[in-house]
Amino acid sequence: MKKIFYLFLLLPIVTLFVSCEKDNGSIDINPTSEDEYYQVSFDFGGDIFVEQKQLGNTNTTTTEMKKSPTLASASASDIYGINVYYDKEKDGTPNDVYAYGVFDNVGYMNIKLLSGHKYSFTCTLVKNGKNDLYYGQAYRQSYPGFCMPFLTSKNIPSMLENKFITGSVQLSGIKNGATHTKDIASPNSSNANSYANVDRYYGETTNYTPVDGGKVLINLKRTVFGAKFIIEGVREGTLTASCGSFWNKTTNTDVTEAEKIYSFPNVYSSWMENPITEKLNLSFKSSIGSQWDLASTKDIVFKRNMLTTVRIVVSPDLASASVSFSEESMDEDNFIDLEINSDGLIDTPVTPNNN
């Protein structure tokens, strides 16, 4: 009877262990008799520069940054998330999940790929992600990890393991702008920030045929926009202004805010060079009479890697003027000068002020 008691006590424990293994989503991807494994590594181009060098005769790989006035350099605080797909049925369409991984070092990005298949790779990079993103326990997990954009398809935070995990699980937020930043105390599916103040990159490589010792090159684009707001001419009243869901201000004095970068709500769409249009809402409440109250809206277009500076001038006596603005790189200012008049319309001076 004593042996029977211990047997029944052990059985639930073994069952629980097996269930945990299944929750990880890891499966074996075995080659057929005609297939073999090829090990490949990764490199990145586009808007970021990463160079790898072997040290001496060891197998250690370090990441060395190239200096460039226009390209961002990799750093130890950056976080990469990569999904790997393949054509399981060898039909030339690599849509089946093969592996995923979260890394902070390009030198550890090595994976064994089955020959005879086509592969595609999607990657997102969060610059300074170790400092800007939430890291801790979340989604009922007992271990700490990163949430969006590195949450897995099983709704589980990702650990920074610097290795690929083969199987049916992938990173669900790579193409999405939703981000759990460090200021979010308890991440969940409804409180991720779609316009996070993080420096985000995205890239893809598809139809890759592996060769032993090959290298997968993924060109990354910076998928953020810049915005700066200047408010002038607020007298004898209060101006309430907002732009989309990422900026709002209520003031009774002039304001010049520092420029900020925002991740696009749809990172993939930004990578495809699709801009977003956000509505600027302005409302002026006069302290000397309701006849001076003003309200109006204006559509503002934000483009990838562009800084837009919006100047709002409260000036009831100004005549109407046309709207004009120029677009320059993130290192320059893209000014939109807006004036809110007594007729409730938003105007701009004919010649933009590029101070």
Rank of each mutant, 00 (worst) to 15 (best):
K175Q: 03
N341L: 14
M306D: 09
K112M: 11
M109P: 05
V301K: 05
M330D: 04
A241W: 06
S329Q: 02
N219M: 04
D212R: 02
G244C: 02
F302A: 10
E259P: 03
S322W: 01
N59V: 09
S245R: 15
V84P: 05
I29P: 11
I111V: 13
G173D: 15
P144A: 10
D347H: 01
Y119E: 03
Q170C: 09
P31V: 02
A319I: 07
K2M: 13
Y6M: 05
P69V: 11
N252Q: 06
G46E: 10
Y6L: 15
K279P: 00
K228D: 10
N105G: 11
D43C: 14
L55S: 14
T223Q: 01
D91K: 02
I29S: 06
L217T: 05
S142G: 04
S287P: 14
P31M: 01
A258H: 00
E161A: 06
S342F: 09
D43R: 15
Y139I: 06
D347R: 13
T238M: 09
T209E: 06
T309R: 06
G116C: 05
K221A: 07
T152V: 05
S77W: 07
R200C: 10
E36R: 05
G101Q: 08
N95G: 08
A196V: 10
T152H: 11
S245Y: 08
A185K: 07
T179A: 08
Q54K: 15
W247R: 01
T205M: 03
A319E: 14
G101M: 08
Y134T: 03
A76Y: 03
K154L: 11
G46S: 07
F225D: 09
S26G: 04
N305Y: 01
Y6I: 14
K53S: 13
W247K: 04
A196K: 10
D343T: 09
G173H: 02
M148T: 06
I4E: 12
I79K: 08
H180E: 13
A185D: 15
Y195C: 04
F5L: 13
T58L: 14
I288K: 11
D333N: 03
D132R: 10
S296F: 11
V301P: 04
A138R: 03
R140T: 03
